[in-house]
Write a protein that binds this DNA or RNA. Sequence first.
DNA 1: GTAATAGTTACCCAGTTGGCTAAAAAAATA
DNA 2: TATTTTTTTAGCCAACTGGGTAACTATTAC
Lengths: 197, 197
Amino acid sequence: MAKDTKDKLLETAHSLFEEKGFDGVSMREIAEEAKVNKGLLHYYFKSKQAVFLGVFKIVSKLIYINLADILKRTDIDFDEKVGLMVDSYFTMLSKHPKMPLFVLSELSKHPEFAEGADLSGTLSEASLLIEECLAEKNINEEGAGFQFLISMVSLCVFPFMASPLTKVVRPASFKDDAQFVAARKIYIKQILIKSYQ
Amino acid sequence: MAKDTKDKLLETAHSLFEEKGFDGVSMREIAEEAKVNKGLLHYYFKSKQAVFLGVFKIVSKLIYINLADILKRTDIDFDEKVGLMVDSYFTMLSKHPKMPLFVLSELSKHPEFAEGADLSGTLSEASLLIEECLAEKNINEEGAGFQFLISMVSLCVFPFMASPLTKVVRPASFKDDAQFVAARKIYIKQILIKSYQ
DNA sequence: GTAATAGTTACCCAGTTGGCTAAAAAAATA
DNA sequence: TATTTTTTTAGCCAACTGGGTAACTATTAC
C-alpha cells in the first residue's frame, strides 16, 4: 500500500494547499486530513517543502494542455484548432477551477519554482507553431504567435480566477454559472478568430 | 502624528501582505517592518483581521478605474473609449503589478470580502454602458457588454499576474519587459476593437 | 496646568508551528 | 518462518503565533 499512501498524502496536501495556500496549511493538518499520523507524513516527505514540491509536480501535469498536438494537425484549419484549444482549456479549468490561481500566487511568492514547472518549453513551442499558422494568414508581426497565445490563455483562465467577482457582477440574463461558462466559451472562440481576420 | 502612523502601518502591512499573503505575515513582522512596537499596532488595530480589512479597503480604491466616466463621454467614439480604458488599466497595473493576484487569491480564500470591496457596482454599471455602445454598433447579443468587459479585464490583467511565466516564455524579439508591455497594450486595443467589427 | 491623545516598554498567555525521534506493532514479502 | 517494509503511537523540541495587559512617558490640545 506504499504508493497508495503517498498518493493519498499528496492528494490531501494538494486540496488543502489549493484551498488555503502554502502558508495556510500545517503538516499536522495534512496528516489529520489524510487520517494518517504525523510520523508517517515525515516518513514519506522529509519536510513541508518536499510535500509542496510533490504537489506542484502533480499540478503541473494537470494543467498541462497538449497544444502542440492540436497545432500540428494538417486535417483541420486554424479556426478549428483554436476551437479545440479553447475546448481543452475549458475542460481542464472546469475540472480544476482553483488551480491557476494557486499556481500563479505560489509562483509569485516563489518565482524559483517557475523552472521546476516545465510549462515553459510547451508554451514556447506552441507560441512558435501559432506564429506559423498566423503567417499563413499573412499576419507577420513580430511575436504575433506569443501575443495570440497569451490572449487565448488570458481569456480562458482569468474568468475562473476572478469567479468570486464575476459571480457578483454577472447580469441576470445568464441564469447560472454553467450557462455563463458555456456562453463564454463560444464568445472567446469568436473573439480569437476575429483577431486574425 | 496619529494619522501618519496609522497610514504608515497600513502601508507597511499592505506591502507585506501583497508580497507574502495574509497567512505569510505576522503582526510582529508588520510592527517591526514599520519600526513600531507590537503594542502600538494593537492600539490602532485590535486584530490581524482588522489590519487586513484596512489594507483591503485601500487596495480596492487603488485598483478602482473610473470606466463610467470614460464610457459616458460623447466627444469620442467607442474605439477611442476602449483605448482610454485599456490605458487606464495599464497605468494602474504598472503602478501595482502584484495587486490583482493578491486581491483574487485572498478573495478566493475569503469570498465574503467580495461585498466589502465595492467593485461590483462599478463593474455592473460599466457593463451596461458598454452594452449601450455595442448596441449602436448593432451588436445586441444577450450579455455582450459583460462579455466585452470581462475580455478587456482578462486581457489587461492576466499577463501581469502570470508574469513569472511569461517572462520565461517571452520570445527574444521583445527586448525587455517594458517593450513587451507597450506592445501588448497596442495588441489588446486592436483585438478588442476587432471583436465588435 | 490639566486632560487627552499618542507612543513605548516589557512582560504574559495558551496554542500552534515545522521538525524530529525512538520504540513498537502490523503487514507484506521472501 | 524470518525479514523487510509500512504504519502507529507518543512524545520531544525550540520557536513562533495572535492576542493581550499594565505601567510609563512623551506630545499635543484646551
